[in-house]
Design a binder for these strands. Structure first.
Lengths: 258, 258
DNA sequence: AACCATCTAATGGTCAGACCATACTAGCAT
DNA sequence: ATGCTAGTATGGTCTGACCATTAGATGGTT
């Protein structure tokens, strides 16, 4: 309300006069608190009203900033007046990664072949790491997934289990970033892949191949043979995408990462 | 198989009464248009006022939805009444990835060692791909970066050029996802790395090592020797992070990927 | 004392309407 | 033509109000 005398009178002619949006400034301040270590996971932020008063901006601006931070899974926001409500700094970016990559594959910001190439690199890393130190609890968990897979399942369920298998492997590598990326990449190509398999009569045959390949990978990992695991993984993924897109009109994959 | 108590339990008739927030619904609708292919990069969306009327929600709700889409770099939003203003579907997710990973490293959602492990995988992929088909224009562009690096530079500038070198390599691999991830991962560990090097007297020596390693990688790639390039890259990155964090109080890296 | 329904307070969620800032376009004036 | 000025459509910001959800505090009943 009290428009200062020097509010907008500084009409500097140098530079593009970066006019920063208010909500961006709010985002920046909060991010900065995080980078400086003054805000840590689990910490509570002041409520929207209090924040808007502290930062001297309106509540809508604060809210828009919160929406951004929420989209990046930096904070989460819940109503109520308990210890669990209000704005809390978050720690689980997996959903944000999945959202981001999924949409941008749909927008063709990233092509299927690019995703496959990156996935291959990470999958190899995941298999090797896991082969080098797998635990018995991991073994049984993965075996349970493999045992559920059989050629009679409908494609969607089958592909779900396939995804679970690979994400589980990544988690065994004890690398949250690797696992989250794997999950996000797999989800990103989920739609185009389901469509590719939908009109294909050879599915029953392929599903048997996939099961066999999974078992091969699993065996190699259990045996601690990282090199063989890598080879099996490469064969598996290459074959998978080749079959899925061999006659695709898009033909995006044949030019694999060049 | 009915014997699945740990299943999705989607068969229940009583749902958790999803009270979905209005802005989430707006986000979902727009995302859906993208997934269904009815919204493509470069397309214009109706303005905020018109959108709020179409969807029968208030303008603030529309705005909060837009903030989310903007944070994920799905749309961009500019004032004015020209062909370039309004809401436009975007195509460059690199900033969003960088923001996301950077903050979550700061939040310790992902550890430095995890980032390094993933970066190593991608860097190897990048070097191999590039070695297999590098163009002369790429060669000169990278050489220009290398020629700027010398031990006399201040650390920040030096590390900037180092990052440029690696991102440039990834871009030569003709994989936008790879390049964006590389850039994001590098940026994510920028702060902790700069701090690690800041108080270290051995920097001049290290910078010379780094320059030598870069040249080795570059030579291997130009020679089209993918295997050697991979070996050089592994040595380079391992050494880099070991030197950076060898006596760090955090000691986050020594437990590489646990 | 133990129990249970209700109230209260704090939070986020939503809305309407107004006004400002920006960036073009068109048309007037020179 | 050129240059300025109004018009207009866009996003950006604000105020202030009200709704919805949550959990603890209250207080009466058993």
């Amino acid at each position: 309300m009290p428009a200062g005398p020097d509010n907008k009178t500084q009409k500097m002619r140098l530079g593009p006069v970066k006019r920063t949006k208010t909500y961006e400034l709010v985002v920046r301040q909060i991010k900065n608190e995080i980078f400086e270590g003054r805000l840590r996971p689990g910490d509570h932020l002041p409520g929207e009203r209090q924040l808007s008063e502290l930062l001297r901006v309106s509540r809508p601006s604060v809210r828009e900033a919160i929406r951004i931070l929420e989209a990046l899974e930096i904070v989460r926001s819940r109503p109520g007046n308990s210890a669990d409500s209000g704005l809390i700094v978050s720690t689980e970016p997996s959903r944000a990664l999945t959202d981001l990559l999924g949409v941008h594959v749909a927008l063709s910001s990233y092509s299927i072949s690019e995703v496959v190439t990156v996935r291959m690199s990470l999958e190899v890393q995941s298999a090797r790491s896991t082969a080098e130190h797998i635990h018995t609890t991991d073994v049984s968990r993965i075996r349970a997934i493999l045992e559920q897979m059989n050629p009679e399942l409908d494609r969607e369920t089958f592909l779900d289990l396939d995804a679970q298998f690979h994400v589980e492997l990544a988690q065994c590598a004890n690398n949250a970033l690797l696992a989250d990326l794997m999950s996000a990449l797999r989800e990103a190509v989920r739609r185009p892949m389901a469509e590719a398999f939908d009109n294909d009569a050879k599915w029953p045959e392929w599903s048997r191949i996939l099961i066999q390949e999974h078992n091969n990978i699993f065996d190699a990992i259990c045996a601690g043979d990282a090199d063989k695991a890598e080879a099996m993984v490469r064969e598996h993924i290459d074959g998978f995408y080749e079959r899925a897109f061999e006659d695709s009109t898009e033909a995006a994959v044949s030019t694999l990462s060049t």
